[in-house]
Each structure stands twice: as structure tokens, then as C-alpha cells.
Amino acid sequence: MEIKRRNFQGVLNILSFNRHFYVFGLIALALIVGSKFIFDWYDCFYWFVIVAFIYGLTMPLIVSAYVYDFSGFYNFEWLAKMKIKDAQDQFNLNINAGFDETSFIIKKILPQSTLQVYDFYDSEQHTEPAIIRARKVSMVYPNTLQINSNAIPLHDHAVDNIFLLSAIHEIRRYDEKVKFLKECRRVCKPNGNVIMVEHLRDFPNFVAFTIGFTHFFSKKTWKMAFQEAGFTSFEEKKFTPFMSIFSCK
């Protein structure tokens, strides 16, 4: 099955999944505008607050449109350039938190390889409203299995490549991250790869998402987690200033 993305699907997803943020933001903005008729605001401060609110509401949408709709990310040319072997003896995993826009694309790029998809979502631990809404509209790859983040149901050294594409930041606790990555290391073959795509808690993403950048984690945090899990390499390549592609062995 091939998924054809709609125009502006990325930014529409952001609006839909985070609509609570935009509803509260617009209500707060309306109250601030209305308060001008009641309180004697200093003009400079008033306009500073207005501009800050508008910036915080619109900039994430502009950057999301750039990253997800105009950068070519979902063309997956960046993955094709990694020259991953495609053969019948190759076994790949794609692990997500229940919102899956990538499995059908991966299968199209690596048609001969076997692809198994796992979903580690736990309603008690992963409570972000955005991911709960995203799960309701996600397409499901055939034979997708629900798993615990600390137990991948495979034998040791069974997997050639594991894809973690904008998903494992939903694992909020550091100790859970490390346990999950230890499982990834356990099931990877000695020459296997873990390919992770994430926004980072860094300056470009602060500019893009303001306080929303705290939903992501720093490169230092990810590097520590991978090292603690036993990985020996951690290589980063930027895909736009706002997104990083990590290849770990």
C-alpha cells in the first residue's frame, strides 16, 4: 500500500494533535486584547506580549510546514542515500508510539527486506494528549504488534536495522529510554544499525517551538542513553536545522 500525503499534511497534523494548545493560546490572546479596554497597559509592553503570543502560535506551524511538507523528508531520499542493503535475508524493525507515517514508505524503499512494525505505546506512561489523538487517525501497517518498551519479542542478534523515526521522545523517563535502547542493542546483529530521527532540545528548535522545545531531548541526553545502552557509535547528520538523523551501531 502506498500513502500519498496531502498538501500541508504535516502542519495540519500539528494543528490537529495539539489543538488544545492553540485553543488555550487563542483564548489567552483574546483576553489580553480585551484587557486593553480595562487596564492601562504600557503600549510597548502590550505590543511585546501580543507579538510574543502570535509568534508562539504561528512559528511552530511555519517550521512544521517547512520540515514535514516542503523539505522532502517524506520522500526518504535521506534514507536511500544511506545505502542500506535490501535483500531477502535482511530483517528490519520500525518502532513507533502508535502514529505511523513511515512503515509503508520504508517498505517501498526496501521492498525485498522483511519489515516488522512494533508499537510501544503505553496509555499509563505515555500520556501526551497529542500522541493520544495521533493514534486515533494513524494508519496501521499489517501485522503491527504492541510491545512493552523494555521487551522486544525477538531473539538476540536477529535484526539488521531498527528505525526510530520521531517516536522515542515519547519515552519521557531516562531510565526507560536506556532500557528500551538496551533491547534494541540486544536484538541487533553485531553489524546492525539503529537509525533515529528526532528534533532536539537546542537553539534552532527553541526558536521554532519556544517552550514547546522541552518536549524534545538534547543531543547530550541521547548520546548518554545510547552509550549507557552499550552502543559504540553515535553519528549525527542534520536534515534541516531543526531535525537530526542519528546512525548508531
Results as ranks from 00 to 15, higher is better:
10 G>Q: 07
79 L>P: 00
155 H>D: 10
59 M>R: 09
117 V>Q: 07
247 S>L: 12
111 P>T: 11
224 M>E: 06
214 T>E: 08
79 L>R: 01
106 I>M: 05
124 E>N: 13
14 I>G: 03
125 Q>R: 11
12 L>D: 09
119 D>R: 00
31 L>H: 11
62 I>E: 09
53 F>H: 01
24 F>S: 14
240 T>Q: 12
245 I>N: 03
148 N>E: 05
78 W>N: 03
158 A>R: 02
156 D>Y: 02
20 H>Y: 14
205 N>C: 08
102 T>S: 12
106 I>N: 00
224 M>T: 06
244 S>E: 07
166 S>Q: 01
163 F>V: 00
215 H>A: 06
32 I>E: 13
153 P>C: 04
7 N>P: 15
163 F>L: 01
69 D>T: 07
167 A>G: 01
206 F>M: 04
3 I>C: 12
132 I>M: 12
85 K>S: 14
108 K>G: 12
175 D>T: 06
97 A>C: 15
41 W>S: 05
35 S>K: 11
76 F>E: 06
204 P>T: 01
142 P>M: 04
28 A>L: 13
62 I>H: 12
155 H>G: 08
198 E>H: 02
154 L>T: 04
73 F>H: 07
177 K>Q: 07
175 D>V: 05
164 L>Q: 00
220 K>F: 09
24 F>T: 14
73 F>E: 03
8 F>D: 14
220 K>Q: 15
128 E>V: 08
228 E>H: 09
25 G>S: 10
15 L>M: 15
103 S>A: 15
243 M>I: 10
245 I>T: 03
38 I>W: 10
196 M>Y: 01
20 H>M: 15
218 S>P: 02
52 A>H: 06
38 I>F: 14
179 K>I: 01
53 F>G: 02
247 S>M: 14
28 A>R: 08
203 F>N: 10
214 T>K: 11
175 D>Q: 08
238 K>S: 11
116 Q>K: 13
25 G>F: 04
133 R>V: 08
81 K>S: 15
221 T>N: 08
143 N>I: 05
50 I>S: 03
203 F>G: 05
49 V>E: 00
74 Y>D: 12
43 D>C: 05
203 F>A: 09
65 A>R: 12
70 F>D: 03
170 E>N: 01
107 K>R: 13
70 F>M: 15
103 S>D: 09
102 T>N: 13
244 S>Q: 12
42 Y>S: 13
128 E>Y: 12
118 Y>H: 04
152 I>S: 00
118 Y>P: 02
155 H>V: 07
196 M>S: 01
227 Q>D: 13
92 N>H: 12
4 K>R: 15
69 D>I: 08
226 F>L: 06
28 A>E: 07
236 E>I: 07
73 F>L: 14
231 F>W: 06
64 S>C: 12
213 F>H: 04
94 N>P: 06
8 F>P: 05
208 A>K: 00
85 K>D: 14
87 A>G: 14
87 A>R: 15
59 M>C: 07
